[in-house]
């Protein structure tokens, strides 16, 4: 996914990094700050409000004053995803966003993504489980999986008998 982000940023000069936000395995949370403080920081950085709404959307309102260190893995993940809502960015690039989420939270998150799409946003997700988004266009990478180590017959770059470098 990092490759995708870098490629997008490099190849499409028009598509600036400023329209993207990225969420991967590291949630960018500070353990000693509370849920609200973590979100307020990212909201302030992006100049966007809506911390309360973001907490409500990701079912974090009751945990608002708990320090991120004391959250479970799934709660941390939800906080990391709630961050997307306070960036105000139209394009979300998400690498395995559902890791450590339970079924109910996956459904919650799918709803958030759907609302984001409905409001004109875009999301690019790499995932192992079905999020239940019928409108999603799927690029199935399974057929392209390298099943066994590829052995190229006839040597490597040193062999120019085929005239490849002639």
């Amino acid at each position: 996914m990092e490759l995708v982000v870098t490629d997008l940023a490099v190849q499409r000069g028009g598509l600036t990094v400023l329209s993207l936000t990225y969420a991967a395995h590291a949630d960018g949370l500070k353990a000693v700050l509370s849920v609200r403080e973590n979100l307020e920081f990212w909201a302030a950085i992006h100049g966007v409000g809506g911390v309360r709404e973001a907490m409500a959307r990701m079912n974090l309102a009751e945990l608002a004053d708990r320090r991120a260190a004391n959250l479970s893995a799934g709660q941390k993940r939800r906080l990391g995803l709630a961050r997307l809502l306070v960036t105000g960015r139209p394009i979300w690039v998400l690498d395995e966003p559902t890791v450590s989420l339970d079924v109910a939270s996956v459904a919650l998150f799918a709803g958030v993504v759907r609302d984001h799409l409905a409001s004109g946003g875009m999301a690019l997700l790499a995932t192992h489980i079905d999020l239940g988004l019928p409108e999603a266009r799927v690029l199935d990478l399974a057929p392209f999986k390298a099943a066994r180590p590829m052995v190229v017959a006839g040597g490597g770059f040193d062999d120019d008998s085929a005239g490849a470098f002639a």
Binding site: T21, Y22, G28, L29, A31, I45
Partner: peptide, 14 residues
């Protein structure tokens, strides 16, 4: 860097 904030700060509007 360890908790991923630096990546996010690098793509922030600042």
């Amino acid at each position: 860097f360890e908790d991923g904030s630096l990546d996010l700060l690098a793509t922030a509007p600042i």
